[in-house]
């Protein structure tokens, strides 16, 4: 078994959005849509300010409500790495999965089906990192198998404090942010 995850170092990320452009070109994401995005959170008062920048995308949740609510099986968990995917030819465009995702990770592709991050499974299956990971100039993104204790991501999680997004929502997200 494998369980693909991402580990992202917020200390290094500069919010440049290279990951966003790379995803758009790699995956032909249509104009006006994005599969990944950036958030900035500022705490404190100037000049004792604190800024956290995060690159976000589908969390490939281990308990994915988007898959549970899908009436056609279009949204499914891929055998490889537990990646959550959509099969366009099965999708009816009911948008239940969009409403079910607490991260707003999905959108309706102009062609009508639900679309979102695929963890670039087409690259991963060829031994490459996802496009966003491979382009990041600060090398703050890491992709790998959480079930392999020797993987880079497992070691990073073991070594540094981290948090996923919205664990309260109960989806068991699989992207971890090092802080």
């Amino acid at each position: 078994m494998s369980r693909y995850i991402m580990v992202i170092d917020t200390k290094r990320c500069v919010g440049c959005m290279d990951c966003v452009v790379a995803c758009k070109t790699e995956n032909h994401v249509p104009e006006g849509f994005t599969r990944d995005w950036i958030t900035e959170t500022v705490h404190g008062r100037f000049p004792t300010t604190n800024l956290e920048i995060r690159t976000e995308r589908c969390n490939h949740c281990a308990n994915p409500p988007c898959v549970h609510c899908c009436p056609t099986g279009a949204s499914h968990v891929h055998a490889r790495g537990g990646v959550v995917l959509v099969t366009p030819e099965k999708c009816i465009g009911c948008k239940a999965c969009l409403a079910a995702c607490p991260y707003d990770a999905r959108f309706v592709h102009p062609k009508g089906y639900a679309d979102k991050c695929t963890f670039c499974i087409h690259r991963v299956e060829n031994g490459l990192d996802p496009a966003c990971v491979s382009v990041c100039p600060t090398r703050c993104m890491h992709f790998g198998d959480a079930d392999d204790p020797q993987s880079g991501v497992s070691r990073l999680l073991a070594a540094r404090p981290h948090h996923p997004l919205l664990p309260e929502a109960g989806t068991q997200p699989r992207i971890y942010y090092l802080t």
């Binding site: 290279d18 452009v21 070109t25 100039p137 090398r139």
Partner: peptide, 10 residues
Amino acid sequence: RLCPRGTGGI
């Protein structure tokens, strides 16, 4: 690795 502008150069 290119920067976002390089990646978006197309």
